[in-house]
Amino acid sequence: MSFVVAVDGPSGSGKSSTARGVADRLGFAYLDTGAMYRAVTWALLQRGVDTADAAAVAATVGEVRIDSGTDPLAPTIAADGIDVAGPIRSDEVVRHVSPVSAVPQVRTRLVDLQRRVIVGTDAPGIVVEGRDIGTVVATDAPLKVFLVADPQARAERRAAEEGGSDTAATAASLQRRDRIDSTRAASPLAKADDAVEIDSTHLSLDEVIGRIVSLVEERR
């Protein structure tokens, strides 16, 4: 089986850039599980499903087909055969993804898909990023990383990613997402007992990538 690197942490901690960088440097595949949840959310909204209605979400999620590309330099995400890499970053999807992600049937479906991608990769390893990779999706991963950063740094990074949006509003949004992710009944955001915590607040992206690459090389 390929070497699995599980990268977890809250929104804005730098998971995506870090995970892609690690995968590229090591020649590994890359899987963004957060994009899968946003793609499902987009598809449900397209169907007119009330995302606050857990029963309706649970009844419909099985109809949605999700396909995730694993090239770290050009990751792709499609829902029902449609490229949704752009649409899933919209404010509407961002507003609705937390309640969708909290529905157990959604998590069960996507965790199964994520495990299939991990097992099916032809690459020598795969870097998987999300919020429950080390605790649920890949509990036997030989390397688990929990990436954190202080709230201000996270808000500034996310605001920059979103084209310079208001930092205060972004901080409030991240706090709301943290609260939902950490308290939901199904697969809450949590640090695995055997995860290595890295605080990226005062580190450059290259420094964080370098630390994780070194950990991989130590454990391979």
Rank of each mutant, 00 (worst) to 15 (best):
V103S: 09
D166C: 12
V117T: 14
A43I: 00
E207V: 07
G12D: 02
K144I: 13
L73D: 00
R47E: 02
V216E: 08
K15N: 05
D193V: 14
F28M: 06
T170A: 11
V4F: 02
V84R: 09
E92Y: 12
T135M: 07
G34Q: 04
D67G: 01
S200L: 04
T60G: 01
R157G: 13
D67K: 08
S68G: 00
V137I: 00
A153D: 04
P99M: 07
Q175A: 15
D181H: 02
I118K: 06
V106S: 13
G86V: 15
D193R: 13
A29L: 03
H202M: 08
A58W: 05
L189K: 07
D50K: 11
I209P: 13
S2H: 06
A58V: 07
R131N: 06
A123L: 12
R107A: 05
A58D: 04
E161M: 03
G125K: 06
R109F: 02
L205I: 15
I198P: 10
T108D: 11
D80A: 05
P104M: 08
A195R: 10
A35P: 11
P87N: 04
D206M: 07
L147Q: 09
S214D: 14
V94M: 08
Q175D: 15
V4S: 02
D132K: 07
S68F: 12
G14V: 08
D181Q: 06
S2M: 10
P188C: 10
I180P: 01
A171T: 11
E207L: 05
V119K: 13
L143H: 10
V208Y: 05
R158Q: 02
E156T: 15
R220E: 11
D199I: 05
G62M: 01
P151S: 03
I209G: 05
V145I: 13
P188M: 07
A149Q: 03
L113G: 09
S187V: 04
P124H: 09
R154L: 01
R116D: 15
D112Q: 13
T76Q: 03
T76A: 13
D50M: 03
R109G: 04
E218V: 11
R115D: 07
D206H: 11
V57F: 01
E63V: 12
A159P: 04
L143W: 10
E197R: 10
R158D: 10
L203R: 15
F3Y: 13
K191T: 10
V119A: 15
V94Q: 15
V4W: 02
Y30L: 06
D112F: 09
S204A: 12
V145L: 02
M36H: 10
V137A: 00
V49A: 04
P87I: 14
S200N: 09
T167I: 14
P151Q: 06
Y37W: 02
L143I: 07
L147S: 06
R220Q: 14
R65F: 00
Q46V: 07
S165D: 13
G62L: 01
P10S: 05
T167S: 09
S11F: 01
G27W: 09
R211Y: 00
V57M: 03
L205D: 00
G9E: 03
G125L: 09
S90A: 10
D53G: 11
A29Y: 12
A23W: 03
R107G: 13
G27K: 04
A85M: 07
T170C: 08
A52C: 03
V97A: 14
G81N: 09
V136E: 15
D166M: 08
V213G: 06
V84W: 08
V117Y: 15
S68T: 05
G34M: 04
